[in-house]
Amino acid sequence: MYEEEVSLSDIDLYSQAIHMYQQMDPEQQRLMMHIVEVVMVDTVSHVFGVIDGSSPLNDSDIEAKLLLDDIDTEGYLQDLFIGYLQEEDLYP
């Protein structure tokens, strides 16, 4: 989708980001996509950590706990996700 032509808008940040990407040389584009991949992996990992209780929510009295068949999953989802990425050589 970053290769498709978009009209540049002063208001739409999405079109501005695509335009910026299209103005980069291939090495800069590769680096930008790598940064996006790292942010996605870190975000999913953190969400799994919050869900399984291994990553606390900042400034919150609420603590999440996920039970699967009455078994606490503390740390399991986040570890499984990172382990899968490493095993499949997908970790950015």
Score class of each variant (00 low, 15 high):
Asp72Gln: 04
Leu57Thr: 02
Asp10Pro: 06
Val44Leu: 11
His46Trp: 08
Asp69Asn: 15
Gln86Arg: 15
Glu87Asp: 12
Met24Arg: 00
Val50Ile: 00
Met32Trp: 08
Gln78Asn: 04
Arg30Gly: 00
Lys65Ala: 10
Gln28Asp: 05
Pro92Leu: 04
Leu13Glu: 11
Ala17Arg: 09
Ser9Ala: 12
Ser45Trp: 06
Asp72Ala: 07
Asp70Lys: 11
Phe48Thr: 01
Glu5Gln: 10
Asp52Ser: 07
Gln78Arg: 08
Tyr91Pro: 00
Ile35Lys: 02
Glu88Asp: 06
Lys65Asp: 07
Asn58Thr: 13
Gln23Trp: 00
Gly83Lys: 13
Leu31Trp: 00
Asp42Cys: 12
Ser15Glu: 06
Asp12Ile: 12
Ile62Val: 15
Glu3Ala: 07
Gln16Ser: 03
Arg30Glu: 04
Gln86Thr: 13
Asp89Asn: 14
Ala17Thr: 13
Tyr84Thr: 14
Glu27Ile: 01
His19Pro: 00
Phe81Lys: 02
Ile82Gln: 13
Leu8Arg: 09
Gln86Ser: 12
Asp89Ala: 10
Val47Gln: 03
Ser54Met: 02
Gly53Pro: 03
Val38Arg: 14
Val44Ala: 06
Val36Ser: 10
Val50Gly: 00
Gln86Lys: 15
Tyr91Glu: 11
Ile82Gly: 04
Ile11Trp: 09
Glu88Phe: 05
Phe81Val: 05
Leu67Ile: 03
Leu67Ser: 08
Leu66Lys: 07
Pro92His: 11
Leu8Glu: 09
Tyr84Leu: 13
Ile71Asp: 14
Tyr84Pro: 02
Ser60Glu: 04
Val36Met: 11
Asp25Pro: 03
Asp72Ile: 02
Ser9Cys: 14
Tyr21Gly: 01
Glu87Phe: 09
Ile62Gln: 14
Leu90Ile: 05
Ile18Leu: 13
His46Ser: 12
Val36Leu: 12
Val38Thr: 09
Ala17Leu: 13
Gln29Phe: 01
Glu3Tyr: 11
Leu77Cys: 10
Ser60Phe: 03
Ser45Glu: 15
Gln23Phe: 00
Pro56Phe: 02
Val38Asp: 13
Leu66Asp: 08
Tyr91Phe: 14
Ser45His: 11
Val6Thr: 12
Asp52Pro: 04
Gln28Met: 02
Asp10Phe: 13
Leu80Val: 04
Gly53Lys: 05
Ser60Gln: 06
Met20Glu: 14
Val44Ile: 10
Glu3Trp: 10
Gln22Met: 01
Asp61Gln: 09
Val6Ile: 15
Ala17Ser: 14
Ile71Glu: 15
Tyr14Ile: 12
Gln23Gly: 07
Leu68Ile: 15
Glu37Lys: 13
Glu37His: 07
Leu90Tyr: 11
Val47Ala: 02
Gln78Pro: 00
Leu85Arg: 09
Leu90Trp: 10
Asp25Ala: 08
Tyr14His: 10
Ser60Trp: 04
Met32Arg: 10
Leu80Pro: 00
Gln78Phe: 01
Met32Leu: 07
His34Tyr: 06
Glu63Thr: 15
Leu80Phe: 07
Glu63Cys: 08
Asp52Thr: 09
Gln86Ala: 11
Val38Met: 14
Leu68Asp: 04
Gln29Tyr: 01
